[in-house]
Design a protein around this nucleic acid. Structure first.
Lengths: 211, 211
DNA sequence: CGGAATGTCGGTAGTAGTACGGATTGTACT
DNA sequence: AGTACAATCCGTACTACTACCGACATTCCG
């Protein structure tokens, strides 16, 4: 086995994106695609079979989302580095990804050359972030990196995103409206989001809701 | 010029998807990629330069969305057929696309062989829909096809989904709050949705917002 | 021409959510 | 034992949104 060969595994639920990446990366002879996976829930199994050096991972996937999958991988396989491949350009996404153990974060609107560079960096143990990501982290430093919601807050948020009012949620969970409102405030404060609309979009993007 | 050559133009805001499609379709020698466009607002101009037979169009894009772009194209260029390339598998979405003048609708989780078949069909003047789409249309016939929002309503809805209040929207568009509220009511009534959360999810699913 | 749809605007009353304040329990970690 | 956090609850005043009613101008189509 060529020691300089970087074994890459793709995790994305869009075959076209997989095909595209495979095609683009096949031009580089120091990279080998050793596995594909269309769903986060099969990531660990596939990774153990393929033993990749780098896992190129989409965040938004059905069933298990990319952040959870990343957490599982980084906790159980030291050899595999995770490179997030996302279309979301928001500080929370990036910080969450880093907390989950990702080594890098690139956007889907980057070209194949940059994807190649990112994979090389990650394989060498370095980290890599899209330039626009780096710029955003400088402009908008992750002041509260601890923006993760508690289980209760996630539950409340999912009801909110489903369209239930605070009153409805209070009745469903048999707690006071004031409690629900307090959770609302805490969630918005933690996520630094002002409007209900942004909450809903966050919930949808996080996969807290079927949508 | 080879008369059997099908000229294809891509419209997608993700370079990786563009690269992937280009790479996959380059295997077929009766297809030529004659243009790329990363944004709906430049579609018409690019199409006039490239004179494509088939336009492969993503729906969710910043600025001008795919449905509006499709409408513009089909109204001003007879020669170009539009094939929608979407990740959304919902009945309203498909019917809206057809109403906008699209000749076909395939999902992003189809493989490159099916994309090729779809392009061929479209170029011959036929229509093409992913098999799962066809099945869905049979199982779930578009009961209220008349749920289509006007351009103004789509605009209002996109602002709502971005998190703006009626007051904000009124100021942005320099109209009265009451008008915005009236649009809100009409939109909810048309879509048969009660809550703001459902509106936001609808907007996100329809690709009216970057998200 | 007549009707339908669209986009515009208003009153009034009621409901929902927000922004300030607080407070009490329990659990969990040091 | 003490601190930190999660989860629960309350008062008050304010803002935003909703539901009902209405109106008028324009445009498009049969």
């Amino acid at each position: 086995m060529n020691p300089a060969l970087i074994k890459v595994m793709l995790v994305d639920d869009h075959p076209m994106v997989q095909d595209g990446l495979s095609a683009c990366l096949s031009f580089y002879d120091d990279i080998a695609i050793v596995g594909n996976c269309g769903d986060g829930s099969a990531v660990l199994e596939t990774a153990k079979q393929c033993q990749p050096n780098v896992i190129l991972m989409d965040i938004s996937m059905p069933k298990l989302n990319g952040l959870e999958a990343t957490e599982i991988i980084t906790e159980s396989m030291d050899s595999a580095k995770v490179l997030i491949f996302s279309m979301h350009e928001s500080a929370e996404f990036v910080t969450n990804a880093v907390q989950a153990g990702a080594s890098g974060y690139i956007l889907k609107d980057t070209n194949s050359e940059e994807v190649y560079q990112a994979i090389k960096s990650i394989a060498q143990g370095k980290s890599y972030f899209s330039s626009s990501i780096a710029k955003m982290l400088i402009d908008n430093p992750p002041a509260q990196a601890n923006a993760r919601l508690t289980a209760r807050e996630q539950m409340i948020l999912s009801y909110i995103a489903k369209g239930q009012s605070s009153k409805d949620i209070a009745q469903t969970l048999t707690i006071s409206i004031r409690t629900v409102e307090a959770h609302r405030r805490n969630i918005k404060s933690k996520l630094n989001l002002d409007s209900l609309a942004e909450l809903v979009r966050y919930a949808v993007n996080q996969g807290l809701i079927d949508s």
